[in-house]
């Protein structure tokens, strides 16, 4: 256990060493910004399909939200899963087990990036569902208009 947090001398591991630092710095802004919008400006109790749709399907700012989320998901999955791999490599010495670990880690990472990017890129607002949702929440429970940074245009009634 003497060789922890030592910069790799070259090759694959050095590439990852730099990646972890660059993606980490970017994620400080992307992930903390995401948490700030969803947990501080808004609230888990008001996040629903309607909320997601008003961000991703917004005609003016939807592209920005999608780009933000796409960058964040790709960097976060690679950063997180490579981190788990590095931790496991410290405890697993046998080559065969390491190959197994990386196979599992990288196939799940590719799968997650695939479904995440699919959701972000191919989302389209389900107008029927939104209409039903607004009908169901008229009167009693208010439909919560998402609190978003000032660039966002308010939803039309």
């Amino acid at each position: 256990m003497a060789s922890r947090r030592v910069k790799p001398t070259g090759g694959y591991e050095l590439w990852w060493w730099y990646f972890m630092r660059v993606s980490g710095l970017l994620l400080v802004f992307l992930a903390l910004g995401h948490l700030f919008i969803t947990h501080i400006l808004n609230n888990v109790e008001v996040i629903n399909y309607h909320f997601v749709s008003s961000r991703w399907a917004n005609p003016q700012t939807g592209v920005i939200w999608r780009l933000w989320d796409l960058t964040m998901i790709n960097l976060a999955v690679l950063h997180g899963f490579n981190g788990v791999r590095e931790v496991l490599y410290e405890y697993i010495a046998s080559n065969r087990a390491r190959i197994m670990v990386s196979t599992i880690i990288w196939s799940s990472a590719v799968g997650l990036i695939a479904i995440g990017s699919y959701a972000i890129l191919l989302f389209h607002s389900d107008k029927d569902y939104i209409r039903d949702f607004e009908d169901a929440n008229r009167g009693g429970t208010a439909i919560h208009a998402p609190v978003l940074p000032p660039t966002t245009i308010a939803r039309q009634p």
Partner: peptide, 26 residues
């Protein structure tokens, strides 16, 4: 870090419902 990675896995799967089945997402 490991905790966040596990949460990330759950969070990406639940957000996938938003494009697959709006009702299941809600």
């Amino acid at each position: 870090g490991i905790g966040i990675a596990i949460f990330l896995l759950i969070h990406i799967v639940d957000t996938f419902f938003v494009v697959a089945y709006p009702r299941l997402y809600d």
